Computed example of a mutant assay.
Amino acid sequence: MSARLNTAQPYVIGLLRIVVGLLFAVHGAASLFGVLGGAAGTQGGTIDAGTWPSWYAAVIQLVGGTLVLLGLGTRAAAFVASGSMAFAYFDVHQQAALWPIQNGGELSVLFCWTFLLLVFTGSGAFGLDRLLARRTSAEERRAADQTPVAA
């Protein structure tokens, strides 16, 4: 049973990456463009450009979430996204109370730890990282096969 579960691991990680990336990107899009209800705390509005830290967080959410969704530069994008969520938790939420259930920081904590997991697991299946890695290794093999051997 465990062997079958292990063979499914890259696919489940890939699906997790896609869902989490999409949800994170949607948060950024809502804050930057006012779609899907707009920025939190506004009535369908957006965050003013350059507003610290919320506008920068929204840019990280949109760009980082999109990169994670696509599986492109997953580890780096997930690292930045994880850090931004840690900052959000400690700077915004923990001032209100110690525990996430008390301070409304559950989503920040879950995003933070999920992105940190992706830093270590990589993109899993279905990611552009894997596609590009395969293409690069195939090109390197072709180049090695065409290299003349010195006699």
Rank of each mutant, 00 (worst) to 15 (best):
S2K: 11
A3I: 09
R4D: 13
R4C: 07
T7H: 13
A8C: 14
G14S: 10
G14Q: 10
I18N: 01
V19C: 11
L23E: 06
L23M: 14
A25P: 01
G28E: 04
G28F: 04
A29G: 12
S31F: 02
L32A: 02
L32E: 05
L32H: 02
G34R: 02
V35G: 03
L36M: 12
A39H: 01
T42C: 02
Q43L: 09
G44T: 03
D48E: 14
D48L: 11
T51K: 13
W52S: 10
P53S: 07
S54V: 05
A58D: 05
V59S: 06
V59F: 05
I60A: 13
L62W: 01
V63C: 01
V63R: 00
V63Y: 00
G64W: 02
L67F: 05
L67V: 06
A77T: 10
F79M: 12
A81V: 12
S84W: 02
S84C: 11
A86H: 00
A88E: 08
A88R: 04
Y89W: 12
D91N: 15
A96V: 09
A96W: 04
A97N: 10
W99P: 04
P100Y: 15
G105S: 05
E106V: 05
L107S: 07
S108G: 11
C112F: 11
T114A: 08
T114W: 04
F115R: 00
F115E: 02
L117N: 05
L117E: 07
L118K: 03
V119S: 03
T121P: 02
G124Q: 08
F126Q: 08
R130C: 05
L132M: 12
L132P: 03
A133Q: 05
R134V: 10
R134Q: 14
R134S: 14
R135V: 14
T136R: 12
A143F: 07
A143M: 09
A143P: 01
D145S: 15
D145N: 14
T147L: 15
A150M: 13
